[in-house]
């Protein structure tokens, strides 16, 4: 697996897309920091961008890479290699190279700006960790979709639809159901609803840092326990890990049964 990972990683590191992605984040970081001159504001804006864009890029990249390397995958399949190591290697190659672009692209301007001396370093690290988690989750989801759909166009369509659903539509339905059932105690429901969507989950993690003052304004013991203690942080990270593990397991499972 490590060998496949190595080759996939280097293959991607050389592709111009990685540079485009890297350059995009570099530019974003520079514009936010040096034109804005306000670290806190930059971190907040970045959060909005990361929550929405990282999943989109992870999804598109994951699907694209899978379909583009299909013949190469077949070449590998004929070699004495385990299927799971081929797909996990490729998946990790994509996820790691995307994460690298993200971390370096955003990290460099922030380091240049003097992040290490700033108190925003924890907010920023949390942001990057969340971004990496989202990359891993959405690459895995994209691989799942691609594995289940031979048709490239269909696969792309489903992938974009999934992103659209998790990034926007889900929250709309979520909000509607909250308003619809507002006469009932909702704190558990709302937390469960958050856990079931990795984008909401990462958003919550960042809310815990940026908006704790607002979150603590609400009654309900469950909310208090979740947001007021490290419980929320731990559960969120746990759920994010589960969100990585489950799709990865499905990659292994699905790839074992698939015909090429």
């Amino acid at each position: 697996m490590l060998k496949i990972l190595k080759y996939s990683f280097f293959d991607l590191m050389r592709s111009s897309w990685s540079y485009v992605y890297f350059a995009f984040y570099l530019l974003l970081g520079i514009v936010l920091l040096f034109l804005n001159n306000d670290l806190s504001k930059a971190v907040i804006t970045l959060m909005n961008v990361i929550i929405v864009l990282v999943p989109l890029i992870g999804t598109v990249f994951g699907v694209m890479y899978y379909y583009n390397s299909k013949e190469f995958t077949e070449l590998l399949l004929a070699q004495p290699l385990k299927r799971s190591s081929i797909f996990l290697g490729q998946y990790l190659g994509v996820a790691i190279s995307l994460s690298m672009s993200l971390i370096l692209g955003l990290g460099l301007p922030f380091i240049a700006y003097g992040l290490f001396k700033s108190s925003a370093i924890w907010d920023f690290s949390l942001l990057l960790i969340t971004g990496v988690f989202l990359t891993f989750i959405f690459c895995a989801l994209a691989f799942n979709i691609a594995l289940s759909n031979e048709n490239k166009i269909k696969g792309f369509g489903y992938a974009i639809l999934m992103w659209l659903f998790l990034a926007i539509i889900y929250d709309g339905l979520f909000l509607m159901s909250l308003i619809l059932f507002e006469d009932y105690p909702l704190d558990k429901l709302s937390l469960v609803g958050t856990m079931l969507n990795p984008i909401d989950l990462s958003r919550t993690l960042i809310l815990l840092k940026l908006d704790i003052s607002a979150l603590l304004g609400y009654t309900g013991a469950v909310f208090k326990q979740f947001f007021g203690t490290s419980f929320g942080l731990i559960i969120s990270f746990l759920m994010l890990s589960i969100w990585v593990i489950l799709p990865v397991l499905r990659i292994v499972f699905k790839s074992r049964k698939k015909d090429f």
Partner: peptide, 13 residues
């Protein structure tokens, strides 16, 4: 040893 039908290799290698 297997020679696949359509050989499409990773284009960046």
């Amino acid at each position: 040893d297997y020679l696949p039908q359509i050989a499409n290799f990773p284009s960046n290698l």
